[in-house]
Amino acid sequence: MFRWCTDEVEPHDRFDYWREVRAKGLFGVTAELERERRAEFFGEFSLRQLGGAGLVELKASAYAVERSASDIACAPGDAICVYQQLGSGGWFGGLRASDFAIANGSFATSHTDLPYRTAPLGAGGFHLRILKIPVSSIPGQDKRMRELAPKTFNDSALAPLLSACFTDLAEAAAGGGATDPTSLVQAALVQALAHLALIERGILRPGSRRGQAALRTARLSQARHLIARHLQDPDLAPIMVADQLGVSVRHLHMLFETSEKSFSQTVTDARLKQSRRLMREAPERLIADIATACGFDSLATYYRVFNAAYGMAPGDFRAQGPERR
Rank of each mutant, 00 (worst) to 15 (best):
R250Q: 03
F296R: 02
V241T: 06
P283H: 07
D243L: 03
E36Y: 08
I290W: 01
G315T: 11
H251G: 12
V247G: 11
Q265I: 10
L58I: 05
Y116R: 03
Q265W: 11
N154F: 11
N104E: 13
G54T: 05
F42D: 12
S156A: 14
R304M: 13
R144C: 11
E32W: 05
A173F: 07
A69V: 15
S262N: 06
A31E: 07
Q85M: 13
R325P: 14
R201Y: 07
L272D: 13
L198N: 04
T258I: 14
E171H: 08
G321R: 04
Y83A: 10
I72P: 11
A194Q: 05
D297Y: 13
P160V: 10
E66M: 06
S221N: 13
Q265P: 07
E281Y: 08
S46V: 13
A164E: 02
A173S: 13
K273N: 15
D142F: 03
L33E: 01
T301W: 12
L198K: 07
L131W: 00
L169P: 09
A170H: 15
G315Q: 12
A170N: 15
Q265K: 09
V267K: 02
A119M: 05
S264N: 04
G51F: 00
Q191N: 00
V29C: 01
E36A: 09
A197W: 06
K143W: 03
Y116C: 03
T182G: 09
P76S: 06
G246Q: 08
R250V: 01
G321D: 04
L198P: 06
L131C: 03
F45V: 08
P115Q: 10
R210W: 08
D269P: 08
S88I: 12
A313R: 10
R146M: 10
S163D: 14
L196P: 07
R3T: 15
S68R: 14
V21I: 00
D7P: 10
L286M: 13
Q232C: 12
N104L: 06
L162S: 03
T292W: 15
L26Q: 11
P160E: 10
S61I: 01
E34S: 11
S264V: 02
V247T: 09
C165P: 04
P283R: 03
V21C: 00
G105E: 04
R19L: 05
N154T: 15
L286I: 12
D155Y: 09
A192G: 00
L184E: 08
I290R: 04
P120W: 03
A79W: 00
R250C: 01
M145P: 01
E32S: 14
L169D: 11
L278D: 02
V21S: 04
R304H: 15
S248G: 02
S46R: 15
R3F: 15
A228S: 14
E36D: 03
L114H: 10
Q84C: 00
D297E: 15
Q84T: 01
I138K: 06
C81E: 05
L196C: 07
K261L: 15
T179W: 07
I199P: 11
L148I: 09
D71Y: 06
G176Y: 10
A159Y: 09
A62F: 07
A69N: 14
D289K: 04
W91K: 10
